[in-house]
Design a protein around this nucleic acid. Structure first.
Length: 327
DNA sequence: CGGCCGACCTGCTGGC
DNA sequence: TGCCAGCAGGTCGGCC
């Protein structure tokens, strides 16, 4: 279940292997993995072949590779001066890992993974695997080609090795994530004050703040001692500030844990790398003792509730349900 | 238009 | 032992 820290681990790992290399071929093994590419398999492949990968960029859980496309397939009567914009990226290969997606660098000799969906062949480079493979068991993730458009706030589109003032179109609607240097707390606070909803719903809404999934939402809420149903418009700056700090802390910890393995040959991203390695204080701990209460000599049992068709884990003492319960 | 819910998927688990 | 319901969850279309 990759959330932001896992995707960032992938981004760093991937950048090391693919920057500057060109795509020599694409096999779509399961077209369901490119269903977000509306123009179909042929168009998907056609947009990638002969393109050069410039970078790997991330915002929230979206990952994309800006491409330089040189018109090698077009009429060869060129050799005139190419336009100045010829090498500026206009499109990008977008990837979302969904629930179970992996991006793996592999040698051609390695047998296909059971859930291999797309194989991207790269130009040979010394001591580097020649294939980038997209593997996805549950098919919630996928690949597609998207345009790059200017950002609305003038900042870089996302986190990359060489940041560009452009963003993948399909990621343009999501907010900056809390690890983005251009993340604005004031903007986040304004957004939640203007909403009439519960705080966990807002945390999971990628247009309010991006990169947070169910696990880190529960961890951050527990850490900030906030109940998931707390009305966002009743939150004070201090509440919101404590929460954003908690989100950052839990993500930084996961990133540090996941980062230890990202120089392996595999761009290790099955999601196990980060958060399973670190200890969770809330998520999945139903029936166990709240570790904060325990430190105070209390024996409070963590509980699990259904909320938004998913599980939420809370400590009934640290995170009491708000009383004047509009949310 | 903002809030919210179901659909999309597969594999694993637990109950009968 | 076998079958089936339930569960896991990120994103988006569509409904109210």
């Amino acid at each position: 279940m990759p959330e932001l820290p896992e995707v960032e681990v992938v981004r760093r790992g991937l950048a090391r292997w693919v920057r500057g290399r060109s795509i020599t071929g694409v096999d779509v093994i399961d077209p369901r993995s490119i269903r977000r590419h509306a123009l179909g398999t042929e168009d998907f492949i056609g947009n990638l072949e002969h393109a050069t990968v410039l970078d790997v960029v991330r915002r929230g859980k979206f990952l994309w590779m800006p491409l330089a496309v040189t018109g090698t397939d077009d009429a060869p009567g060129d050799l005139t001066e190419p336009p100045a914009t010829a090498h500026l990226p206009k499109v990008a290969l977008m990837a979302h890992l969904g629930m179970s997606g992996q991006l793996l660098m592999q040698d051609p000799a390695v047998p296909d993974e059971k859930h291999l969906k797309v194989r991207i062949k790269l130009s040979p480079a010394e001591d580097m695997p020649e294939q980038l493979r997209f593997v996805d068991q549950r098919i919630f993730g996928g690949l597609f080609v998207t345009s790059l458009i200017p950002t609305s706030d003038g900042g870089p589109g996302g986190l990359g090795e060489t940041p560009l003032p452009e963003i993948a179109e399909e990621a343009a609607h999501i907010a900056r994530d809390p690890l983005d240097p251009y993340f604005s707390f004031d903007l986040f606070y304004r957004k939640i004050k203007n909403r009439r909803t519960g705080i966990k719903r807002a945390l999971l809404d990628q247009s309010v703040i991006s990169g947070i999934g169910n696990i880190y939402a529960d961890e951050a809420l527990w850490s900030a001692r906030l109940h998931y149903a707390r009305a966002t418009d009743t939150m004070r700056r201090a509440d919101a500030g404590r929460l954003v700090d908690a989100v950052r802390d839990v993500m930084q910890a996961a990133l540090a844990a996941g980062g230890t393995s990202f120089d392996s040959l595999y761009v290790n991203v099955n999601g196990d790398s980060g958060y399973f390695a670190r200890s969770l204080n809330a998520y999945g701990r139903a029936g166990e003792l709240c570790v904060r209460c325990e430190g105070l000599g209390l024996h409070t049992v963590m509980k699990r509730e259904q909320f938004m068709n998913r599980s939420s884990y809370t400590c009934p003492v640290c995170q009491p349900r708000p009383r004047n319960g509009r949310w």
